[in-house]
Write a protein that binds this DNA or RNA. Sequence first.
DNA 1: TACACTAATTATAAAGATTATAAAGTAATA
DNA 2: TATTACTTTATAATCTTTATAATTAGTGTA
Lengths: 146, 146
Amino acid sequence: MSEEQLEHAIDTLKESGVRITPQRHAVLDYLLNSQGHPTADDIYKALEGKFPNMSVATVYNNLRVLKEIGLVRELTYGDSSSRFDCDTAEHYHIICEKCGKIVDFYYPTLDEIESLAEQVTGFEVSHHRLELYGTCKDCQEMEVSS
Amino acid sequence: MSEEQLEHAIDTLKESGVRITPQRHAVLDYLLNSQGHPTADDIYKALEGKFPNMSVATVYNNLRVLKEIGLVRELTYGDSSSRFDCDTAEHYHIICEKCGKIVDFYYPTLDEIESLAEQVTGFEVSHHRLELYGTCKDCQEMEVSS
DNA sequence: TACACTAATTATAAAGATTATAAAGTAATA
DNA sequence: TATTACTTTATAATCTTTATAATTAGTGTA
């Protein structure tokens, strides 16, 4: 399943004229197969074994490239570091305020609010970002039991 | 008008047992009277004239305190630095991708999506964050004329 | 008003994330 | 295979934010 995604992503890279280096391939592969939403450092640490000489800058460079061609999205929360997401399908995120877990969440996109905003503000809206915050099931249970 | 807001905010500070120092007063005053959504550095630079010896840490300390008692909200975007907002009424933000301008935008809060998310994910939702991105009127005109 | 207590400020350093730079390496193409 | 442009590496620099310790200054009370 994610093999298919990977091949599709590589096709996109080729079309964009971006070279497919082993490091770039590995970053993409890691992002596609990671359930969570890793930080640049997560990715760096995860690939250290495979590429002992890899530099952090390479991770950042590749994330920037992947972002530019639309394969990856950068998520910035209150935290210190950005998180990266490979799921290209439109979706939202719900974040646990206790443990930091980020879960994907699908909902029909809010076209209505976009068009209203255009009328009110005169902006031309390109996209929006919505995040929900709360407590996940695990942390709820921990609160009860403690 | 903002005088009233300022007094109300100071009452809140007193109730919370937080001391009202000149620097703290100035940060609050600046936030209340600034139309934009300044960064910590914006505030620091703006108050440098009045408090030549003020430390950046003071700005951050005060912003943290003001956040803790709910007078100020911190907004984190893709940018490098956080922005701070004193408007306590619920509202959303629309951000210009060309010039970075942030405009307030009011919309009935999305209770519906919160309750749906609770059902789907099992989270207990506390709040959400929504931002719209696009091009503001000024930047649209500049594109046409160029 | 003066005192004492505690919080806030200052100055400085440190931490952490990200970006810049230059040199060396490597993929693609003719 | 030679060339060219793109990538990686190693390192340093930058920038935002937080931590620390010493000094200063609010605030309540006598």
